[in-house]
Design a protein around this nucleic acid. Structure first.
Lengths: 204, 204
DNA sequence: GGCGTAAGCGGACTTTACCCCGTTTAACTG
DNA sequence: CAGTTAAACGGGGTAAAGTCCGCTTACGCC
C-alpha cells in the first residue's frame, strides 16, 4: 500500500487533477456519510458515486480509515486554529494550567460533535496509531506541560499519558454498544473529571 | 454476528464438543502464530489446519480479533491470579497505593511480553473498545482506588482515565511502525512514568 | 506548440472476513 | 433405549478492502 501523502514537507506539490479529485472525494464522502451512515460508506460505493476509479480512491486515502481521518482533519483544522490563536482560556495569554483544562474540555466537545466520524476513524490495522489518535493533541499538551513547573518528570511520557486519559474514556463511550446516558451529561462528566485529573497531576 | 459467549453467568454450560473444539482451535492458533506470524493467521487457514469448518471458528470467536483476544485472555488468567492472590506488592496485604503502582508495572511487562498478540488483538471494528482493552484492568484499578483516600472524586471515571493512561502509551508503542528504541528501555520508562503519574494523582 | 516523463487513473483481480442455512449430534427426559 | 430439541457443525456464498499494471494526462522544458 502506498503511503497517502502525509509527507507535507514534500518534494512536489499535488497535481491539479489530483487535488480536484481529493476535494470531490471528500465532498462525496460527506454526503454519503450523512445519507447512509458510516457502515454503508464503502470504498467501492464511494468510487462509483464520485465517478472515479477504485484505484484513485485508494491512492488518495491509502485505506478506508484514511477517509475518515481526512474528514476529521478537515474539521480539526478550525479547532486547532482556536487553540493556537483564539481567545483565552483556550488561546495563548491565559495561564498554561487553565489552557490545559480548557483544551481537554474543548477536545471533548469537538469529538462528541464528530462522534460518527471519530468512531469510524478507529482502525486496528497497522498504518496508524490506534490508541491515541491525534499527534496534534499530544503535541499541544506536551507544549503546555513544558510551561508548568512540575518538578522532575518525563514530560514526553506524561503528555502521552494525559492524551490517552483524555481520549480513552471518549473512545470507550464511542464504541459502547449501549449508551446508558445522555451525551450532554456524559460530556459534562468528562469535562469535570478531566479538570480534576489535571489539577491533581499539576498541583505543586 | 453472534456474540462469542462471554456471558459468564450463563444459562447453559458449553457443550462438550464445543469445549473440545475451542481448546483445539486455541492450540492450533498458537502454533500458527509462532510459525507464520499474525498476518498469515487467517480464519480460513485456521479452520483448514484444525480440520474444522469456518463456521465453527466464527461461532467460537465471533471475529478475527476475537481469536487474539482469546489467546490474550488465556495468558491473562495466570496474570490475574498473581494480582488477586499473589505475594505483595502485587497481591493483597500490601497497601493499596503500592499495589496500584505494582499493578501497572506488571501489566506493562505482561503486554510487552505478548506484543504480537496484543497488537493483533487491536481491531477497529465495532466489537471492542480500542482505547481501554481489558475490563479486568479497569475493574482492578477501580477497586484499588476505592481503598485510597482521594477526597471528592469521580472514582469510576478516574479509573477509566488511569487505565487509558496505562494502555495508551503501550498501544502507541505497539502500533508504531518504526521502533526507535529497545523494548527493555521503553518498558522501564513506562514503569517509571506510571509510578510517577499514580503518585501525583494520589498524593494527599 | 510539440515532447518526455512522472504522476495519476481505472477497473479487473485477489484475498479475506464474515453470513447463511441445511444437516448432524450432544445431552436431557421418560 | 427411543425421542426431542437446541446447540454445534460445515462449507459454499457474499461483499468489501486492498493490489496490479497497462493506459492516460498534466506540466515543465525547449
Amino acid at each position: 500500500m502506498k503511503q497517502p501523502d502525509v509527507s507535507w514537507g514534500a518534494p512536489r506539490p499535488e497535481r491539479a487533477d489530483a487535488a480536484r479529485n481529493r476535494q470531490h472525494l471528500i465532498a462525496t464522502a460527506r454526503e454519503m456519510l450523512a445519507e447512509l451512515g458510516p457502515d454503508r460508506l464503502t470504498m467501492d460505493a464511494l468510487a462509483e458515486r464520485s465517478g472515479l476509479g477504485k484505484g484513485t480512491v485508494f491512492r488518495r486515502f491509502g485505506t478506508r480509515a484514511g477517509i475518515f481521518g481526512a474528514l476529521l482533519d478537515d474539521g480539526e483544522r478550525a479547532f486547532q486554529e482556536q487553540v493556537l490563536c483564539g481567545p483565552p482560556p483556550l488561546g495563548p495569554s491565559a495561564p498554561p494550567l487553565d489552557r490545559l483544562v480548557a483544551y481537554g474540555q474543548a477536545r471533548v466537545r469537538f469529538l462528541m460533535e464528530h462522534q460518527v466520524i471519530a468512531r469510524a476513524a478507529l482502525d486496528g490495522r497497522q498504518p496508524i496509531p490506534a490508541g491515541s489518535q491525534s499527534p496534534l493533541s499530544h503535541t499541544h499538551i506536551r507544549m503546555l506541560l513544558g510551561q508548568i513547573d512540575l518538578g522532575p518528570a518525563d514530560l514526553d511520557l506524561l503528555a502521552i499519558q494525559l492524551t490517552a486519559a483524555l481520549d480513552g474514556p471518549l473512545l470507550l463511550y464511542l464504541s459502547a454498544a449501549t449508551l446508558t446516558q445522555s451525551p450532554q451529561r456524559f460530556e459534562q462528566q468528562l469535562s469535570d473529571s478531566w479538570q480534576d485529573l489535571v489539577r491533581r497531576v499539576c498541583r505543586p
